[in-house]
Nucleic acid binder design. Structure first.
Length: 890
RNA sequence: GGGAGUUUAGCUCAGUUGGUUUAGAGCAUCUGCCUUACAAGCAGAGGGUCACAGGUUCGACUCCUGUAACUCCCACCA
């Protein structure tokens, strides 16, 4: 085959990623390499965790998706039908918050808009910014099947969510109920427990005095409570004390007055109250605290809600109406202090819940919400992971998963938002509820139920709320293949269950657990075979990357600066599954340097292409190098495959890095390098091109661009690396590998000797080898001679006078050169070696003379120890010989 | 408060069921090199009582117990 003439001027000094990346990404896409259709091959499917539709690319996405791309590209090259589905999530609260903020900047308040108008703005926003993130992903070379791009509010997706709601309601799994929920006063919505972040917050614990009610009350008679929330006192309905508390036994049953508003409330006794916290007396505010609510229920107390939706004081508070809760806290404290109700203020730190989205303090609030009963859904999902039908990598997350699933609570799925799937519930004038996909259907139901209901004219209003965004994304692995909206279709049957889910451990409950629950409920099958949990990307100081800290680097700029391959290398090289990765730009630099290294190896080969001799005869001097490298390649191929199976991606990458840089560039290429003005054997050249090709193929899933480019530069090709199928495993020849190691050890050892004795590389030496294994050396002698720059190499039986002695392995080397020999330095190093060997020998002697060791240790261990002993003895005697020789020359 | 995890070289990490001659990499550091593929490079070197204290064992980085530090998750102490 004619070799493509490469225009040398076109090969740049260093690898320049920009144009190469654009060129190949377009080519791959135009060639349809990323597309997947069901066929006879085995599928390998990954559904990408959909990023927020209006989000922008950050390090987390980079890590997460690089891993997925490596798995997908590897599967594609291993002959599987690889399908990687992209998409975006409507991300209800996050997106709505952004739209509200955008409108506010324009001077528009959400409350002034109709639902329809607001959604118009929201869709407009989505059209404008949605999917930017997907475009950014292309820059990293991700081989996603773009034709399958799905959005969680696509029509079929929307319908499937509604369908599931109706279905689960029918099954009695979805219900409506009044519960204490977490209320976000800024977003004006309920939050699930998972959306609340608890933070240690310094606060004040205020001791407030409640006066005893009645006519003949003496000054100071009453009870003092401790609270961090004085602004809720207007919602107090009782004071609770522990029945076993002697301080308050007399008080139980009496009444006290709420300060400032003078409402009478009873003192009750309940074991819930801790004796030694605060004052041992607790104010009970059922409307604003989970526990107080429970207490209130138990004791039949009234509920007084003193807040409005937005966290300002309501009419029921009587005072400070309309003012913000935290402003009121300050004012009340001041007023109480002035009026003598405040007896003490201590500083106190406790965990306070904050909204994940808006970062405001969450307000516990009683409200009517929609719920998913999780008990039935959880048990098959728990079993699947515990019995390893679904594998977790790393496995430690199984414990976390189990703990959560065993203590799972019902899931609050309604959100007071407009952006999302609207709850398909309609209410008639009497408050009857009809669950239906459309209003017409709801009307029909209403008319059937109630003969007074006029199907055409009676009033029926739809629930204002939307569903939690996770209530749509838990269907993701099914509905991207229309498994809910069109069950049993060809695609869902082919692609589901998917193979691997790659995601962050932070969303194990939000998303992973729920997908598993939905999978078993709707497909009666797991959604994926394995879950790979990535680490969290942190900065050098170990802080989580976040917008507020401003420590998140601009990914697009990094790609621009280092190249996509280098960026992928940088995030992968130190990121074992489940471990956090400390982001450090030096890793990207290493990646860039690696690209250049490969680029230059390619340049060297291209230069040699012209130096080839005409014949096809192998050069015998090169054959050792070629055979050795072929075995090394086979060895790494096997171990990379093993690592990939266990998801040890960074380990696989490290092996490839070392194979290419150390074994190929530093050793192999030097070994076959022709001398000045010498031709290169055509056979050697062809073997080398084959090696480079194989390495590019193995590395391609990790660094797709540079490998594809080199693949095409090095030889004219009819195909592309992107879809090239992996070759069968090569043959590993242990004997050759051993010879290679010996050769490397000798070369390194003699280089060291040159440095220590100040012998310049250009100065040729004569080498005398004293060994009883001449045959092990015979085949590597020619290479050795070239590499250590020896005029001649002889085998000898005894020490050679006037030479430098070097011990490598068990063998003895005598280096003869014109340079003066520094016997002092030699003596020093020999003594050091001797010292160490003697100590070593002592420990082995001790071990071998230990009867218990001989009696208990395995036979092969004893044999090994004996070998160590004899080897060390042999080595020691050589060193002693050398020491004597030096001493005698002095 | 409960649970899980981590602790190996200056930094980031490997180290597979306890034994493989002196515990490995990469980065960083130091020394010498512009040797015509690559100074974003080449060659070489130094650097670790494997967190600490016990225990099991002929033998422990590896197994067990305790301690300390850090990280994460869960939980209603106002």
């Amino acid at each position: 085959m004619p070799i493509m003439a490469i225009d040398k001027t076109a090969i740049t000094k260093n690898f320049e990623p920009g144009d190469v990346e654009r060129k190949w990404y377009a080519h791959w896409q135009n060639s349809g390499y990323f597309k997947s259709e069901p066929n006879d091959k085995q599928p390998y499917t990954i559904v990408m965790p959909p990023p927020n539709v209006t989000g922008i690319l950050h390090m987390g996405h980079c890590l997460n998706n690089t891993i997925q791309d490596i798995l997908i590209r590897d599967a594609r090259m291993q002959g599987k039908n690889a399908c990687w589905v992209p998409g975006t999530d409507h991300a209800s609260i996050a997106t709505e918050a952004k739209v509200v903020a955008m409108l506010r900047e324009k001077g528009i308040k959400k409350s002034d808009l109709s639902r329809e108008k607001f959604l118009e703005y929201a869709w407009e926003w989505k059209e404008k910014y949605g999917g930017i993130i997907l475009e950014q992903l292309k820059k990293l070379g991700f081989s996603l099947d773009w034709d399958r791009t799905t959005f969680t509010m696509d029509e079929h997706y929307y319908d499937s969510v509604i369908k599931v709601f109706i279905d689960l309601h029918k099954k009695g799994i979805i219900y409506r109920g009044k519960r204490m929920i977490n209320w976000d006063v800024k977003a004006l919505t309920a939050l699930s427990d998972e959306e609340v972040i608890r933070k240690e917050t310094p606060q004040n614990l205020y001791h407030l005095h409640y006066k005893l009610a009645g006519d003949n009350v003496k000054e100071g008679e009453g009870i003092t409570v401790a609270t961090v929330r004085p602004e809720t006192i207007m919602g107090d309905v009782a004071i609770a004390v522990n029945p076993a508390d002697p301080r308050y036994t007399m008080m139980v049953g009496k009444k006290v007055l709420v300060p400032l508003i003078n409402r009478e409330i009873p003192i009750i006794a309940d074991e819930y109250v801790t004796l030694d916290f605060g004052t041992g007396a607790l104010k009970v505010t059922p409307a604003h605290d989970q526990n107080d609510y429970a207490l209130g229920q138990k004791h039949g107390l009234e509920i007084i809600d003193v807040f409005n939706d937005d966290g300002t004081m309501s009419e029921s508070a009587q005072i400070y109406v309309g003012e913000d809760r935290f402003a009121v806290r300050k004012k009340i404290v001041k007023e109480m202090e002035e009026k003598g109700f405040l007896t003490k203020t201590e500083s106190y730190t406790s965990e306070v819940g904050y909204s994940e989205r808006t970062d405001v303090v969450v307000e516990p609030r009683l409200s009517m919400q929609w719920w998913v009963s999780t008990e039935k859904l959880a048990s098959p999902a728990l079993k699947a992971v515990m019995e390893e039908e679904i594998q977790f990598y790393p496995a430690k997350y199984r414990n976390l998963y189990r703990h959560w699933m065993e203590n799972i609570k019902d899931w609050c799925i309604s959100r007071q938002l407009w952006w999302g799937q609207r709850i398909p519930a309609w209410y008639d004038a009497d408050g009857n509820i009809y669950i239906a996909a459309t209003e017409a259907e709801a009307r029909k139901q209403a008319a059937e139920k109630d003969s007074n209901f006029d199907e055409k004219n009676s009033v029926l209003t739809q629930d204002e709320d939307c569903l939690d965004t996770w209530f749509s994304s838990w269907l993701w692995p099914m509905e991207v293949f229309k498994g809910i909206s069109d069950p049993g279709n060809k695609e869902i049957e082919y692609y589901y269950p998917t193979q691997t889910l790659v995601t962050a451990p932070e969303i194990i409950f939000f998303w992973v657990a729920r997908m598993i629950m939905a999978g078993y409920d709707y497909k009666n099958a797991k959604p994926f075979d394995a879950v790979y949990f990535t680490g969290i990307v942190r900065d050098k100081q170990g802080r989580k990357m976040s917008k507020s800290l401003g420590n998140s680097p601009d990914l697009l700029q990094l790609i621009e600066q280092y190249g996509a391959d280098a960026t992928r290398f940088g995030v992968m090289i130190a990121s074992p599954a489940g471990n956090d990765i400390l982001f450090d730009e030096s890793a990207l630099e290493q990646g860039r340097n690696f690209c250049n290294k490969m680029w230059n190896a390619q340049k060297l080969l291209l230069m040699w292409q012209e130096k080839q001799d005409s014949g096809d005869k192998p050069n015998p001097d090169d054959s050792v190098a070629i055979e050795w490298f072929a075995s090394r390649l086979a060895e790494v191929q096997k171990s990379v495959a093993d690592h990939m199976k266990q998801f040890k991606l960074s380990e696989a990458l490290k092996q490839l890095y070392s194979l290419i840089w150390d074994d190929f560039c530093s050793w192999y290429l030097e070994w076959i390098k022709p001398g000045m003005d010498q031709p290169m054997a055509g056979h050697t050249y062809k073997a080398s091109v084959k090696f480079l090709t194989s390495m590019m193929q193995m590395l391609h899933p990790f660094m797709p661009f540079v490998t594809e480019e080199i693949y095409h530069n090095i030889e004219e090709r009819a195909d592309d690396l992107c879809v090239k199928q992996a070759p069968a495993a090569g043959i590993i020849n242990e004997n050759i590998l051993e010879q290679g190691s010996t050769l490397k050890a000798v070369i390194s050892g003699l280089r060291d000797t040159r440095v220590k004795n100040n012998i310049k590389p250009r100065e040729a030496i004569s080498l005398h080898i004293c060994t009883d294994r001449n045959e092990n050396y015979s085949s590597i002698i020619p290479l050795m001679q070239k590499q250590v720059n020896a005029k001649e190499i002889h085998f000898v039986d005894t020490a050679v006078e006037g030479t430098i002695n070097v011990v490598i392995g068990k063998e003895q080397f005598y280096v003869e050169s014109d340079a003066p020999i520094d016997t002092g330095a030699q003596l020093e190093s020999l003594k050091k070696e001797k010292d160490h060997l003697e100590k070593f020998l002592l420990s082995i002697d001790k071990k071998l003379s230990n009867e218990k060791f001989i009696a208990n240790a395995k036979e092969e261990v004893i044999i090994l120890e004996k070998k160590k002993q004899s080897d060390a003895k042999e080595k020691l005697s050589i060193i002693n010989e050398n020491l004597n020789a030096i001493a005698s020359t002095k």
